[in-house]
Amino acid sequence: MNEARILIEVKDLCKYFDVKGGRKLHAVDRVNLTIPAGKTLGVVGESGCGKSTLGRTMLRLLEPTSGQILFEGKDITKARKSEMRQLRSKMQIIFQDPYSSINPHMTVSDIIMQPMIVNRLFHSREEMVARVKKLMDTVGLADRLYNAYPHELDGGRRQRIGVARALALNPEFIVCDEPVSALDVSIQAQILNLLMDLQDQMGLAYMFITHDLSVVKHISDEIAVLYLGQCIERCGATELFRNPLHPYTKMLLAAIPVPNLSARTRELQVIHGEVTNPIDPPPGCRFAARCPYCRPECKEKDLPLREVNPGHFAACTLL
């Protein structure tokens, strides 16, 4: 995926939250990423490892603690409010829960129109109405739902509203934070097909956060594995499943429940050992305390990602 133009690049990005006693919770800790235009970066990792925080910080919905976010080569961490408003129309987010991310008192059309009003994108109401209708058509929402309320719709249609709203301002980059987790597998398949069609038509780049590894494999060009705020492995999607390098990644892939009875007798694949506290974490590999291969040097200093095979990066002293 080197040939495509880099749309977004993240350099040494950190997001620390202040907690009691002047201590810092390292939610995102020196992460480096690039996403080419028109491509999808899948992001996976343990619950609480900082995926949502990374997504939000990249859109500056949260202020980064340090590091750079380059959008089309320009560092947006220093952009002023007015610049940021313009940039924001190019960068959108879709949340997991179509229920709680949508205001229940607004109609479908109001919800999709809202970002257009906030960003003063159109001059007349007619223009906006036409745009809303076109968007509803794009995401497969019937015309008759124009004045419907979200509670009248099922989860799949509600998630389509989220997609339409994210598309309202013609973005180039969308962070999808678990957009299909709450949906049954059939409706999930519909939404994934829709997102991939839109990508083909409009050249969108996605950062796709999910816990479902078969989904992430299906939709991603490249996958980044996070562990406690740090990116510990990054490579092409098929490569990750064929040849996982980091011990955590291996354990993650081994724990996927498969939808047939052959695995029933298998023990549940649990990772033992104490979870490292992300508040002022000790130096070294964040996975060390739970890693069966841990050696003294693992706890000496933080490990950077290293290109182990061409295009395949991992952070581990074993490699």
């Binding site: 990792g45 619950s47 816990h211 993650l252 724990a255 649990v270 990772i271």
Partner: peptide, 20 residues
């Protein structure tokens, strides 16, 4: 009711093991 949809597969396995 969908206790593990928000969880990754390793934490999910841990929670399912606790239920067992």
């Amino acid at each position: 009711d969908e206790p593990t949809t928000a969880l990754d597969v390793t934490v999910q396995a841990q929670v399912l093991a606790m239920m067992r």
